[in-house]
């Protein structure tokens, strides 16, 4: 992993840096890669604020004292090697650790809402935060339509017209409406893998979340489906704040406004080493470890 220990690591690092640099410098302005938006610090009110968040499972600490302010309506990528706690951080935002034995310390704020506050119910947090998982997981026993509106139904929405409208709107947002409008009653599992994943995105969007958590949403998809999802992510930031976990640096460079880099510390505990606009993180990382990771990993 560390280029210093590899005989030809330096040469390879140079080469990959050059590749990324050409990518970023293609149009003199990397607008096609990094959407020109104000830098992270200058963003309006952050949609999600994490302060000193530590996630541990029993004795094992997955990630330690991460502090992040995720700008509203921006796409933030969490990148890093596997096992460095990106997903743990993601799942801390919608309290998904509550049921799997994970412990979260520190504070997470969703707008003004203290996610782990004493009076906060996880259901209300999750109705404001959507999530898309690594592998497409539409409910196998439900139809396409029932999948899309399942979140609304869970939240107590009964009105048929509201369900129909919200379902259609969500499917349109996920660029799936034209494909499935005639087969809304079909089982969701009839769709292809990429379509299933977009259905899952639509399902999350139907609840009108403020934040959309995406946990390596393309890791089980082919390149074409991946491309469609990436385009979708860029468009979605108009409606929601997207937090994207990915181990693909190019993906982060392509779709993320901001990037947070997680690495394993010396004691095998994940930690946040760098956070800033994607262009800054990739082109002029402040930390030497980020530099090493970013350059060593691409290729």
């Amino acid at each position: 992993m560390n280029p210093v220990h590899e005989p030809d690591g330096a040469a390879r690092a140079d080469h990959t840096t050059a590749t990324l640099a050409t990518h970023l410098a293609q149009d003199a302005d990397p607008a096609h890669l990094v959407t020109p938006r104000p830098a992270a610090g200058a963003a309006p009110a952050p949609a999600v604020t994490l302060e000193d968040v530590t996630v541990s499972f029993g004795q094992h600490v997955a990630v330690r004292q991460a502090s992040l302010a995720l700008g509203a309506n921006r796409v933030t990528a969490l990148v890093g090697p596997s096992g460095c706690g990106k997903t743990s951080i993601l799942r801390a935002v919608n309290r998904l650790h509550d049921h799997t034995g994970g412990t979260v310390t520190g504070t997470v704020h969703l707008g003004d809402l203290d996610v782990y506050g004493a009076g906060t119910s996880p259901e209300l947090v999750r109705s404001r935060v959507g999530m898309v998982f690594q592998r497409p997981n539409p409910f196998p026993t439900m139809s396409v339509f029932d999948n899309v509106v399942s979140g609304l139904r869970f939240n107590g929405v009964r009105s048929k017209s509201l369900l129909a409208e919200a379902g259609e709107a969500a499917l349109r947002q996920a660029a799936l409406w034209d494909i499935v409008k005639d087969r809304l009653r079909d089982p969701a599992l009839r769709l292809s893998g990429g379509q299933q994943q977009r259905l899952c995105i639509a399902r999350a969007l139907a609840v009108e979340p403020e934040v959309l958590l995406m946990d390596e949403p393309c890791s089980s998809l082919d390149p074409v489906a991946t491309g469609k999802i990436e385009t979708l992510i860029s468009e979605l930031s108009a409606y929601v704040t997207v937090v994207l976990v990915t181990h693909n640096m190019f993906q982060a460079a392509r779709v993320a406004d901001d990037t947070a880099v997680f690495l394993l510390g010396d004691d095998r505990v994940g930690e946040l080493v760098e956070f800033g606009s994607t262009a800054d993180v990739f082109r002029s990382p402040k930390e030497p470890r980020t530099q090493a990771y970013v350059t060593g990993h691409i290729g």
């Binding site: 919608n94 998904l96 049921h99 259901e123 209300l124 999750r126 109705s127 935060v129 959507g130 999530m131 998982f133 592998r135 997981n137 539409p138 409910f139 196998p140 026993t141 439900m142 399942s150 979140g151 139904r153 869970f154 939240n155 899952c200 399902r203 999350a204 609840v207 958590l213």
Partner: peptide, 23 residues
């Protein structure tokens, strides 16, 4: 994965059991 999908959509424990696990 199915249970987590339900939970992430704000379903209560019972809703996950009744609407996801039983079907």
């Amino acid at each position: 994965a199915d249970r987590e999908a339900g939970m992430a959509l704000a379903a209560t424990r019972w809703q996950v059991a009744r609407r996801v696990v039983v079907p």
